[in-house]
Every structure is written in structure tokens, then in C-alpha cells.
Design a protein around this nucleic acid. Structure first.
Lengths: 145, 145
DNA sequence: TCGATATTGATAATCATTATCATTTTAACG
DNA sequence: CGTTAAAATGATAATGATTATCAATATCGA
């Protein structure tokens, strides 16, 4: 599972901010790319890396995740339990989430009509819109039976 | 500022669960009712009580807030910074929130059309709907200028 | 009033995350 | 190539919101 686009985004950000390349940071990105599971927590990323005896500490995982967000490679999703999950910010693809309360599965959804109505709500109350967060909690098809 | 309805809800819950009335728990509820500020954090409630030398500890504040939620008197809003805010669950009034990113003001909003479209999203993905969370972040009228 | 049980306060523990700081890497420059 | 300043890292302490513990206190039905 290669991620040329993500690597490039990261490199661009690193040079734009006068940071330095680092093996370990790249290893974190690769581990996330290679995982079949999306929407990983920092703890889960750490577990992926430990399995490979990468010698990468948790501080570095947290730092890398933050930097990857700053670089626009990942999006951070603040969960209700107080932890965060990270997903790839595949260019310009805003979406919301359906979340199964039984198995924790995340499904990415998008409804342009909802987006439009949200903007109307902002306008109606004199708000300058910045962003929004829509999470739909329920039981997925698999968990229903 | 009286809250006969809230007191009653609380009493009903207390007897249904075979708990006991407590002076301090009522004081917490009254303090929240009396505050002009809505959407208070546990910390803010504690501050309200300390100002009055109530002798109520933080553990009791947290316990009371949780119980008031269980009793259906309050709703808990998990904020993105990891803390929670509490609002009155004035019977059957589901709503979402517009939140000012400058001053932190909360505005309660509701759009039946958005609700309907959310249900369609649940259905389209085979989810049994339980609840949702919609938060619109922007800059309010006051903070814009 | 008595006694079983709920409530409380002080404080320790938890959990995710961030800060600190000494050590190691990176990479621009000579 | 080495030097070297700055960034990255690991181990660990600190943070902040919240929950758990447990002995002391309050509640309330008999």
C-alpha cells in the first residue's frame, strides 16, 4: 500500500516549515497507510508499530500524528470518549460520519443538501461559518442481527 | 429562578431508583438554575457553589451532574476540548448547537429538514438510528466586528 | 430513635495527551 | 567528508477532566 501523494504532502510541509525529514515519522505514516483499519487512535497506531519492534515511542507517535494533521495528510476526529481518531484527509473530501455504537465502525457519508441547510442555519443566526461536525450514531447492518 | 419541573423530575428519579434526597444535590441544581449562563462546565458549577461557600466538594458536583443527566433533568454536551457542558433538557426539545469559536457562545438551533435528511442517511446505510450530534462552529455576530 | 443504606469529602487513581530535557539525528556549510 | 546548529526522539513527569476509594456523615422507613 503506497501513498505517494501523502509522502509528497508531508515533504512539502516539512520543507515549508524548515523542519527535518525523519525515518521514524515516515514509518508512522507508512504504518497507518498499511493498516486495513481506518480511523485509528494514537494507541492503535502505537500498537501497530510495537508489533514491528519499530522502537518508536508514544511521544513520537503523538507528535507525528499532530504534524501529519498540520501537513494536511490526516484529519483528527475528536471522539466522545475523549480520545481522537485519525483518517486520511484525501484531498478536498469533506464528509461526516455514521458510527456504529455496537462495533465502533465508521462510515463516511456526505449529503450536499444537509451541507446547504447548515449554511442557512449559520446565516440565519448571523454566524460566519468555519466548520461543522455531524456524527450519526446508530447500529449498523451487521450488528443489528 | 424556580424550577418546579426540574425538582419534580429529580424527585421522581430519586424515588424510582430508591435513592435518597440530599440537600447538597438540590443546591447544585438550584445553582445551575440560578446562573444566567447556560451550558456550564462542572468546573463552572463548582465555582458558582464555592462563591456561596456551600461546602460542596467537586466529587459531589460531578456526581450530581451525572445523576441529573440520568434523571433527564440535564443533557451532557461533550465538547471538543475533552470537557463536558450541561444544559437543561427542557422536555422533548431536541436541538443542535451553533458555537462561536471566539467567545464560546452556544446557540440552540433546530431544522426539521436536516433531521429528516439525517434519518435518510441512516436508512441508506442500513443503520438503526439512535442519536446524532451536529455542531456548527463559526464566529457569532458580536465577535465578527 | 435505630439501623440500613445512600451521600459526601478528601484524596488517590485513571486516561489521553502534552511538556520537559538530555541525547541522538538531520542536513547545510565549509 | 567532518562540524555544527537545529530538529527529532525517548523516557518520564506533568496536565486536566473525570472517576474510584473509603471512612465519616446524612437520610429515612420501621
Amino acid at each position: 500500500m503506497s501513498t505517494p501523494k501523502e509522502h509528497e504532502k508531508l515533504s512539502d510541509y516539512i520543507s515549508s516549515q524548515k523542519l527535518k525529514q525523519s525515518h521514524k515519522r515516515l514509518t508512522v505514516l507508512k504504518a497507518i497507510s498499511a493498516s486495513p483499519k481506518r480511523h485509528l487512535t494514537a494507541h492503535e497506531v502505537l500498537a501497530l508499530l510495537n508489533k514491528k519492534r519499530s522502537g518508536i515511542g508514544q511521544a513520537t507517535v503523538y507528535r507525528s500524528l499532530r504534524l501529519l494533521c498540520d501537513a494536511g495528510v490526516l484529519n483528527e476526529l475528536r471522539c466522545e470518549d475523549g480520545s481522537s481518531r485519525y483518517e486520511f484527509a484525501s484531498a478536498g473530501s469533506h464528509h461526516d460520519h455514521l458510527i456504529c455504537t455496537k462495533c465502533g465502525r465508521f462510515v463516511e457519508v456526505f449529503d450536499p443538501e444537509i451541507e446547504r441547510l447548515q449554511d442557512k442555519l449559520f446565516a440565519r443566526h448571523g454566524f460566519y461559518p468555519e466548520r461543522h461536525k455531524l456524527e450519526l450514531y446508530g447500529v449498523c447492518r451487521m450488528c443489528k442481527r
